[in-house]
């Protein structure tokens, strides 16, 4: 090792980044995700510009309103309504990725702080906080989603949701405001497991020497939790977060399967797959393209998550 490098000091994050780049699968994941992000961001506009198809364009002649296999005109074929599947997969990707990322961030922020604080505080506080989690666990979340969607959906949506959906989908766009509610609902339920996992990790760490040392040297409680305990618990947390993204995307798919997910004519990968599975035996492309796109994305997310875990884990430096 060169002297200079040591003097510069390698921060945890710089170090991690280097290690991450050495992990081929993680790099592959990052590339796929980047391509996917670019595709869903700009793709729909390009398709519209090139072919005139949009995710909600239904041909006006009856014999075109059916499912066509992939062709030059429709690279992924069309769905039962004769809509271009590529356009729908791209548009669905916007929603699925947004659902996954936003809800996971929400669950990370809430879950990690909640779990760590509960575990470190211990005693009565820990007890009360975990009992609250237990209670929330037991609330049937499908009921919660139904209520959220109906009570706060459409006209009754809170102003900030209306504002956001108007920004994204245009004025008075009901479908979009339902989607924002969905983010909110899924975020609300997915932090619970995260909190339990973090708590479990912190519990096993909090009596270790480095924490005791930090406490003895008068480091504040806040700093102990967020500078010492959380980074050390990060390994499983990141694995869990990478599991949360797909599980949230799948939760959304599940709600779509039950018919209370995204609003038509919007779609998500989950709802496209749910529609496609019904026709698997006759129109396999309806499942294959959205399904494979979704699986590839989740794959990449998982590879990236694993790479991050290996890269970030402070203990790996010991080896």
């Amino acid at each position: 090792m060169e002297q200079q490098e040591i003097i510069k000091g390698t921060s945890l994050w710089q170090d991690a980044w280097k290690r991450l780049l050495r992990n081929k699968l993680a790099v592959f994941g990052m590339i796929v995700l980047a391509v996917m992000l670019i595709a869903v961001t700009f793709g729909p506009a390009i398709i519209y510009w090139m072919t005139g198809f949009t995710y909600d364009y239904i041909p006006p002649t009856g014999n075109l309103v059916r499912s066509f296999p992939p062709s030059l005109q429709h690279p992924m074929g069309t769905d039962d309504q004769g809509r271009d599947l590529l356009a729908r997969v791209l548009q669905g990707g916007r929603i699925s990725l947004a659902v996954g990322l936003i809800s996971t961030i929400v669950s990370l922020v809430i879950g990690v702080s909640y779990g760590a604080i509960a575990a470190y505080s211990g005693g009565r506080i820990d007890n009360v906080m975990m009992r609250i989690v237990d209670i929330l666990y037991s609330i049937p979340y499908i009921l919660l989603v139904v209520v959220l969607m109906s009570v706060f959906g459409g006209q009754n949506a809170p102003e900030w949701i209306k504002y956001l959906s108007a920004k994204v989908g245009g004025e008075g766009n009901q479908g979009m405001s339902q989607i924002f509610l969905l983010f909110f609902a899924l975020g609300l339920i997915s932090w619970l497991t995260m909190a339990r996992v973090v708590r479990g990790q912190v519990l096993s760490l909090k009596n270790q020497e480095f924490v005791l040392a930090a406490r003895a040297t008068g480091v504040s409680k806040f700093a102990i939790i967020f500078r010492h305990l959380v980074p050390n618990a990060l390994g499983p947390v990141i694995v869990y977060a990478t599991l949360t993204v797909p599980s949230v995307i799948l939760s959304e798919a599940f709600l779509s399967f039950l018919g209370i997910g995204v609003q038509p004519p919007y779609a998500s990968w989950g709802s496209l797959a749910a529609d496609g599975i019904k026709n698997l035996a006759i129109f396999p492309w309806q499942l294959i393209f959205p399904g494979v796109t979704m699986a590839l994305t989740l794959f990449s997310l998982n590879f990236l998550g694993d790479g991050l875990r290996d890269a970030l884990d402070p203990q790996t430096r010991k080896f």
Binding site: L243, P246, S247, L250, A253, F254, F257, G270, A273, A274, I277, K278, L280, A281, L287, G291, M294, A295, L298, F299, N302, F303, D306
Partner: peptide
């Protein structure tokens, strides 16, 4: 681990019908 990831990426409303088929 790749297989596990595949398992995580395929919703069971897709896996079930495929097995049935």
């Amino acid at each position: 681990m790749s297989l596990a990831m595949l398992g995580l990426s395929v919703p069971n409303f897709v896996l079930g019908p495929i097995l049935v088929l």
